[in-house]
Design a protein around this nucleic acid. Structure first.
Length: 209
DNA sequence: CTGACGATTCACT
DNA sequence: GTGAATCGTCAGC
C-alpha cells in the first residue's frame, strides 16, 4: 500500500481557492470514524469563493451558527445538512475570517469498501457508492457532528500518496445545483477528473428554484 | 413562532 | 425527465 502523507496546513492556508480545489483532485480523503478506516481518492471538487460568491453560504458576509466554521482557520471540515437528509463535506481554506470553502463532490473508493457498503445499505460496489456529495459523506461516515474538526486530526484528513494525476485529465466546469446564484452559477469553479466513473454528472433539479 | 427552501438522491413515468 | 422525501436553518413577522 502506498505511503500516505497528511496535507499540512500550508496547503489549505492560501488565497486561491480554485487552485486548491484543482489540486485536491487525486488526493486521498481518509476517515477514522467509529474506529473504522475508510479512504477514497478525490475526483470531483467545487470551490466556494467567500463573500463575493452568490452560491456560497457566506455570500455578502453572512455568518450564522451553521456556517461559522467557514470563518475558522484553514484546514477545518465544514459539514452541513442539505435537503434534510444529506450531509455535505467541505474543506475550509484561507485565513480565519475569510470564508472560503471547497465542496468534495465525489471519490473513488480505496479502503474500507465493506464498511461503505454497510453504511449506504448497498450490497455490491458500483459507481454510485461515493458519487455525489451526499453519497460520499454517507459512505465515509461523515456527519454534521464532525463539522469544525481539524483536518490535522486522525478522524478526518486528506493525504497524498504515490499516485500522480495526469494534469490533462482535469476539466473545469460550472458548479452543480447552484442555479439560484445568478451569474455566479455559471462560473467555472467545479473541477473533475475526466472520464472517472465516480464523477457526478447530472444531479439537476426539477423545479430549478 | 412560522413558512419557505435547499451546494441532493432515488424511484418512477 | 419529473417529483417526492425530509428537516435544520434562516429571514421575517
Amino acid at each position: 500500500m502506498n505511503q500516505l502523507k497528511k496535507l499540512e496546513l500550508s496547503f489549505y492556508d492560501r488565497p486561491e481557492v480554485t487552485e486548491i480545489a484543482r489540486e485536491l483532485l487525486g488526493k486521498v480523503l481518509v476517515t477514522n470514524i467509529d474506529g473504522i478506516y475508510t479512504s477514497g481518492r478525490i475526483v470531483e471538487t467545487e470551490a466556494y469563493a467567500g463573500v463575493f460568491d452568490r452560491a456560497s453560504h457566506a455570500y455578502a458576509g453572512r455568518k450564522t451558527a451553521r456556517n461559522e466554521v467557514m470563518y475558522k482557520d484553514a484546514g477545518s471540515a465544514y459539514i452541513y445538512l442539505c435537503y434534510g437528509m444529506h450531509h455535505l463535506f467541505n474543506v475550509v481554506t484561507n485565513k480565519a475570517d475569510i470564508p472560503h470553502a471547497i465542496l468534495v463532490r465525489a471519490l473513488e473508493p480505496l479502503n474500507g469498501i465493506e464498511t461503505m457498503l454497510k453504511r449506504t445499505h448497498k450490497k455490491i460496489l458500483d459507481d454510485h457508492l461515493t458519487r455525489g456529495p451526499g453519497n460520499l459523506s454517507r459512505a465515509m461516515g461523515l456527519h454534521t457532528r464532525y463539522s469544525g474538526y481539524s483536518l490535522q486530526s486522525d478522524q478526518i484528513y486528506i493525504a497524498v500518496d504515490d499516485f500522480r494525476l495526469d494534469q490533462k485529465k482535469i476539466v473545469k466546469t460550472a458548479r452543480i445545483g447552484v442555479d439560484y446564484a445568478g451569474k455566479d452559477a455559471k462560473r467555472k469553479f467545479r473541477f473533475i477528473v475526466q472520464g472517472n466513473p465516480y464523477v457526478s454528472g447530472g444531479a439537476r433539479m426539477g423545479g430549478g428554484r
